[in-house]
Design a protein around this nucleic acid. Structure first.
Lengths: 354, 354
DNA sequence: CTGTTAGCGCGTTCAC
DNA sequence: GTGAACGCGCTAACAG
């Protein structure tokens, strides 16, 4: 038996040493053949390759990362994995990362800073080589942890003037303002606005600011009666449209600044016989597929979700390679898809209601 | 200076030793206070806690996992992260795992076995403690890798008689059959069937088998003219419904066995003036929210996606704890949501089409 | 281009 | 209940 107080060797998994023995080389050569094939002669490479095939060796990246002090795992924290908007970003991120041999650790925070903090701590414990955070609001400890970790970190939920490190997003303020200006330019004068509860969703604040700025620029009064907060999903649109029409019968357009609320509202209008866009115009924020398949098709902002995913991942990769150049904050462009739900009737009537 | 050829110490990150020094105990005590607080006296625990707070120590789980030979990371491989059906499962999985202190590494395979194999190899390299695979078709090497790894593995895409290890899903055969039987019991006699291309989607095969079995049981003939394959998404439904109606004008119902095709078809019917359900009944497979918000609401199967996610994760947790009991294959139940799109008109006419 | 040595930070094992 | 020593499997640094 063994003497001493150490621990016995694990005989389960193959180690580099086993492969090395099989190939008749030193473990170091196997290691190099794996990470930097050019540093090893052709003959060696082939022998190592063969030995790995033969034995079915799977390198232990835990040990590798521990030793080299760097991992190939990126942490992503989003409010929810099942929300299609975040899922799209996650997909784009995963695609870019996997092209570069990086893997994705994912967690959902449910719009809760404390949960985000826990996820950040856990990810740092796993020694992720980079972080992507959807939120731009963090607890003090979360901020401290990220800064102390000193790893590249991108925030993607919205533009921020005070990024932890990097930021790739679009301006919710500008986007919302642009849409309201667009509606104004089409002739709408009583433009309602619906968001998610501001309390839960930091981005709603920016969007509302954009709405206000546009009203001001259009010379339209701001009226609390035509502003509402509603829950996410179709149901949120249903209740909001009913509420706004009751409160302000002269409303002529509603901008639903979140999710698929606009679609729920459209369906409800159809059930109630409120013609869209003739009685009420409808505009949406996120360009989900559905919006261009309903009748009438729904005018919306085109937010570059996938581009955000791609660029944020690409930026991290560049940073990890030490080749990153350019500003830390990237403001991606959006545009407006003008569709039937805000198409005004021909000018054969001067007033729409009366 | 240093002698020897070793490597210099890293002074960046805090180690357990630093915390131990701060607390005036040995590193071993810190380790225990972290993993098994009960094994340490109250006083020690408090001192260690304080020292960790003070220093902002984040334990290195790479080192921990390497040493203990077990990690707290689970690997999940789905065909696509952005597809809401998989995203829902992923969310449920992540929720359960995080409750148990486990983390989620995610990869998308795009319905490609080779990509799946690569992801499996990468995950095993990260020494995941368990795997969740959506696919049930694997390359020979993928199968070998998983078996050799000896970690709990759940397949969740469909029931299989030959699981790698565990399987939590529903029977696509039974589900499809049940829906067609349901349509038959409502009086539909020319029931069309649309799936994704069988080539890309192993589950389509089961669903088609279920369709055939139901037709047989209903005493209805099988007619290739009313069976189609189409692309995913709304567009797939649009093209399929047009195609089937042209090929078989006497068709009275279509069962769209994938995705949101049924909704695309409904919209197209509305554009073309084909009344749903009077001219054509429509049924769907997956219960996405949208189906109950369109008019008419669409009859569909209710597949327990989230339950699959929850149970598969729970099963892994149990297995990791050594407390798992019960069969390796769990067949979850589905049911049918009967809605307006398959509601027959009152029996005031004996035949629906003159 | 290849090998040797030491150490990454922690957990297991055993002694006290 | 606490501590000391060793090793998890790999890679940085250096020597040849």
């Amino acid at each position: 038996m063994r003497q001493g107080r150490g621990r016995k060797r694990n005989n389960d998994a193959l180690r580099m040493e086993d492969v090395a023995a099989q190939a008749g080389v030193s473990p170091m050569t196997v290691s190099r053949a794996l990470r930097d094939p050019a540093a090893v002669s052709q003959a060696m490479r082939d022998r190592v390759q063969a030995a790995m095939q033969h034995t079915g060796y799977v390198p232990n990246r835990l040990a590798g990362s521990l030793s080299s002090q760097r991992s190939r795992v990126v942490g992503l924290i989003v409010p929810g994995i099942s929300n299609s908007l975040y899922a799209q970003m996650a997909q784009a991120i995963a695609d870019v990362l996997s092209q570069h041999g990086l893997h994705l650790l994912i967690a959902s925070s449910g719009h809760d800073s404390a949960a985000e903090e826990a996820a950040i701590a856990a990810f740092l414990g796993q020694r992720v080589c980079a972080l992507i955070l959807h939120s731009t609001r963090h607890t003090a400890r979360a901020t401290a942890l990220v800064k102390a970790a000193g790893i590249p970190t991108v925030e993607i939920g919205q533009l921020t003037r005070t990024p932890l490190d990097l930021c790739v997003s679009y301006s919710g303020f500008k986007a919302a303002k642009a849409m309201v200006m667009h509606l104004g330019s089409l002739g709408y004068r009583r433009i309602g606005f619906v968001t998610l509860p501001v309390h839960d969703n930091e981005r709603s604040v920016e969007r509302r600011r954009g709405y206000r700025a546009a009203l001001k620029e259009l010379g339209l009064p701001e009226d609390p009666a035509i502003i509402a907060e509603s829950e996410p999903g179709f149901a949120g649109g249903v209740s909001a449209v009913v509420q706004l029409i009751e409160r302000a019968p002269d409303i002529d357009a509603i901008f639903f600044a979140a999710d698929v609320m606009a679609v729920g509202a459209l369906f409800e209008c159809q059930r109630r016989g409120w013609a869209v866009p003739d009685r009420l115009a409808i505009a949406s924020f996120d360009d989900v597929d559905l919006l261009s398949h309903v009748a009438p098709t729904i005018t919306t902002l085109r937010i570059p979700r996938e581009e955000i995913g791609r660029q944020s991942a690409a930026m991290l990769v560049a940073r990890l390679n030490g080749t990153h150049e350019g500003p830390p904050v990237v403001d991606l462009k959006f545009d407006i898809a003008q569709r039937e739900s805000t198409t005004r009737a021909q000018k054969n009537t001067s007033g729409r209601r009366s």
